[in-house]
Simulated scan of single mutants.
Amino acid sequence: MTIRLIYKSRATFPPFSVTDVDIMREADSHNSENDITGFLVRLDWMYIQVLEGEREAVNTLIQGIIKDPRHYAYQMIQLVEIEQRMFGDWSMGYMDMSGKKLAFSSMLQGLSDTSPAEDMGHVLNHIAHAAQMQSGQP
């Protein structure tokens, strides 16, 4: 069963740090081997991450993420079964929005497990659009 899990957490190091590069390298290798796809958004001291894959693989990954000292205050936002991946071309995409004052930034900061489905849809669509722009797709 394929799932999509979205969580947010707080970074323990400042934006634009080489640590983000390390995270992406590790994610690319691990996720490719385990058929996990997704996208990581950095917004100042906050992360929002979308993970897609088989339930067992994603659950195993999340257990490691929760213990990772590079961030804290893990909060699961959404866990749903899906028929099709939104980030199937990305072992792990990344976008740093730190310092940008966008309406989308406010929505990300306020995201929680009680956020309306409509807000969650907007967030996923924005992240998917960012992924498409980075890959050069229309």
Rank of each mutant, 00 (worst) to 15 (best):
D20S: 13
P138F: 12
V50D: 03
N59I: 03
F39Q: 09
H71S: 11
A130S: 14
L102E: 09
M1G: 10
S32T: 09
G136I: 12
K67I: 01
G99R: 15
Q75V: 00
R4L: 14
H30E: 10
I62S: 15
S29Q: 12
E52A: 06
N34E: 08
G38T: 00
P138K: 11
D89Q: 14
R25N: 12
M133F: 04
G99V: 09
S9V: 01
Q109C: 07
L108Q: 02
M92G: 03
I127L: 10
E26H: 06
F104W: 05
R4D: 03
F13H: 13
D28F: 01
L108F: 05
E26M: 07
Q75G: 05
G53F: 03
I66N: 02
A128P: 04
G136C: 05
M1K: 15
N34L: 00
I65K: 00
D22A: 09
A131R: 01
Q63G: 02
I48E: 05
M133E: 12
I3P: 02
I6M: 12
R42K: 11
T2Y: 14
M46C: 09
T12E: 00
V18T: 06
Q63F: 01
N125L: 15
Y47W: 11
D68A: 04
H126A: 15
M24L: 13
S106V: 08
E26T: 08
D35H: 15
E81N: 15
L40W: 05
L51Y: 03
V80D: 13
E33M: 14
A27V: 01
P15Y: 06
M95I: 13
E81V: 04
H129P: 04
S135G: 10
D44M: 08
A57S: 12
L61C: 05
R4I: 08
F16N: 07
D22H: 11
E81G: 05
I3F: 07
T114A: 14
P69F: 09
E33K: 10
S17I: 06
G38A: 03
N59L: 12
I3H: 02
Q75Y: 04
D89W: 00
I65G: 02
A130H: 07
Q84H: 10
K8R: 13
Q137T: 08
G99F: 00
K8F: 04
I65T: 02
N34P: 00
D119S: 15
S29A: 15
P15I: 01
S9T: 14
T60Y: 03
E33Y: 08
V21F: 07
V58W: 03
A11C: 09
Q75H: 11
D20F: 07
F87R: 04
D68N: 06
W90D: 05
L102Q: 09
L79C: 12
S115C: 13
Y72N: 08
N125E: 13
S112D: 11
M86V: 02
E54A: 13
E118C: 06
M46P: 04
N31A: 08
V18P: 09
